[in-house]
Design a protein around this nucleic acid. Sequence first.
DNA 1: GCCTAACCGAGACGGTACGTCACGTCTTTGG
DNA 2: CCAAAGACGTGACGTACCGTCTCGGTTAGGC
Lengths: 223, 223, 223, 223
Amino acid sequence: MLPVIEQAESAAGRTSAGASDGTSTPVRPGRRRSEESRLAILTAATELLGEVGYARLTVEGIAARAGTGKQTVYRWWPGKADVLLEAVTAHARQHIALPDTGDHAADLRTFLAATFAAATPPTTDALRALMAEAQIDPAFGDRFRETLLHPRREALGTLVDRARTAGLLAPQLTTATAVDLAFGALWYRLLGTRDPLDDDLAELLTRTLLLPSATSSGSADGA
Amino acid sequence: MLPVIEQAESAAGRTSAGASDGTSTPVRPGRRRSEESRLAILTAATELLGEVGYARLTVEGIAARAGTGKQTVYRWWPGKADVLLEAVTAHARQHIALPDTGDHAADLRTFLAATFAAATPPTTDALRALMAEAQIDPAFGDRFRETLLHPRREALGTLVDRARTAGLLAPQLTTATAVDLAFGALWYRLLGTRDPLDDDLAELLTRTLLLPSATSSGSADGA
Amino acid sequence: MLPVIEQAESAAGRTSAGASDGTSTPVRPGRRRSEESRLAILTAATELLGEVGYARLTVEGIAARAGTGKQTVYRWWPGKADVLLEAVTAHARQHIALPDTGDHAADLRTFLAATFAAATPPTTDALRALMAEAQIDPAFGDRFRETLLHPRREALGTLVDRARTAGLLAPQLTTATAVDLAFGALWYRLLGTRDPLDDDLAELLTRTLLLPSATSSGSADGA
Amino acid sequence: MLPVIEQAESAAGRTSAGASDGTSTPVRPGRRRSEESRLAILTAATELLGEVGYARLTVEGIAARAGTGKQTVYRWWPGKADVLLEAVTAHARQHIALPDTGDHAADLRTFLAATFAAATPPTTDALRALMAEAQIDPAFGDRFRETLLHPRREALGTLVDRARTAGLLAPQLTTATAVDLAFGALWYRLLGTRDPLDDDLAELLTRTLLLPSATSSGSADGA
DNA sequence: GCCTAACCGAGACGGTACGTCACGTCTTTGG
DNA sequence: CCAAAGACGTGACGTACCGTCTCGGTTAGGC
């Protein structure tokens, strides 16, 4: 249950830090980036999203709420969507672990339940906005898939693959299609029906993706 | 395979109509709505969406391309998203029938395949844009769900329910969750992975939602 | 004190009525112009001007208040300014007579006082609006000068000329410049200072334009 | 002939200024107002007024001609009329001095002639438009009177008052009414007859407002 | 202990599109 | 043929944000 997925620190890059060899430590002169401003901007964006919605969320508003200049936002992020993306990925990195107990069905159920549990009101608004922006701005769409969707797919794919190797996956499914079904249900409820994402859905998905034998006695049904 | 789902003719309504009985012939005075302009706007919106993308699609641009005034767009639609919504629903109404051959598994597979076939490049752009806008503008979201998502859910729900009544549905699923899984896969591929929606996916979904016995001999595998 | 100045009946012309001889009664076919609509429009325009001001006075508003269609306004007048112009000229024609008592100084004073008296709140708003529109729309400016300013100049010019012939006019003035001074004061107060136009101003103008001898003993002071 | 009337520098004010004492040097942060844009807008407005007339003069057109954004116009002026007002007042401030030679009649004549000389084609169009707008938009009317009409009245009033104190003013006139007559003639010719404003009119007004003795020998008729 | 570089707040800049308003015209139905 | 009703193409409005470009004023090395 340990290895948390590591992701890029920030969309902006331009990191000073060098690699292991001592050759490159450019350590530029000048004032350092204000961590205070960075956090204030992430917080302001998240709060404002909840208050006014994504459509009326503006970079000007974020900067004003954060008490910074507009340029400070644009210096580090391409736009409002990337600010939210950083806020969300930071949150996801903290809360969703990749379990490995040996019980592949239970691991899958646990991971899905944790994923769904992380998709609660402060975050769901951001997720819906990000997926929307990804459709509208292709360049952001690439960053969004790269930073958020792919890592999540890989995490779930790892678990599904373990089950498949153990012969527990339903025969008509590949790892990729199983992941499609699971995240499909997640996103469809987020975007389309807005029904809640609860533990029942995690259980239902686990039983649908795996063979009956993998789940019937192994965990839920018992005896 | 007959009953095509009927939906609202237009966002505007206000038809003069009058049934066979002589009671209602309101026939207002004044110039009639220009059908020519209406079609020109729908066409222009669809074309421009393909050419410049949703972000750079503007009401001004639609009106200019259609050779109409901006006000004529705003008179009949709340914004660019609703124009696209009308264009898409008209398309969906024409192309997706609700089959009823008695073979519930085959009907389901046919319906899904037809649904996926309708989601091809001219239309996919619009669908992705509409789902995006639905996240961003809550009021449009309601209209979108009402006019597009719900009717599609009901259509698929009807087929799934027939299978469920015949005892073919996988036991852990309800009609609603089965529909969630099918449309979840559809939308997730549209929005997230952008993988193609092909007949294989229709087959895979049918086999995953229904019991093995319903599909193994009934249609694909055959005796 | 009799001869009221005759002016054009309407800016639109196209009158059917024939002269006294029976030869010309062209009596065109079709529905006749509605006198009811015409008066309703003139009344509505005057009322609305007082209520919302000239800037927010619109042809649509006039038609709506008058209970007519917009086209009925445009059929008979070029725009809102001409509607007001007709309303004002009708009013002026009724109330300002051209006196001729033999006492030229008194006639002048009487005429100016009557002119000023006619320029009271319901009418001043219209006059100011018309003069404004005349500056902005050159074509209307021509009609405005033709229909309103010139006839008024001619009326006053007649009186001044009588005084000049009698040797009462101040020697440095011509008829034209005397009229300029009188109407200049009138319009400047209307447009610029918005001070009241009272009998004192009529008296002051009379004494300034005429020789002292013409007014000191001749009429007011009296011997 | 020295003291030119000082008026507000700009509609915007908000000068950093600071008197000689070190207490007040507010020097706000942020980018400074672009003097280049300000002049380009004033020039563009004046040029376009001459080319297309006030009715077809638009803020959009001014901004386009000036090479600025529309918002930059609206940031500093309420509308097109105020742009013209600033252009005109700057012009008036430069060209009309207040003479004081001791010969009150000559001073009056000189001032009027200078005023009339400043009212030539580039400027007359603007003056007529401004007076028109002042009738149509009451709020602008207040600004117009405040910044243009009142200062001009005060300047002329000062000269007239000197003449009155010296006993040269025609007895029936007050300072205010004398000013009314002079500016009345000016504006009436501008707006109504559009006759030229020449030196003859300056002479005529001087002789009409002052006693014959003040002008007969003093300047024109002369020895 | 400067110098130089980079970041910070603030806010004006040139733009684009918004959604609204009114214009003056055109097209209906009906007197 | 006129009148009401009302949709049409048009064009400007004033606003909101966009993303960029100055400003004066901090912070930090490096020399």
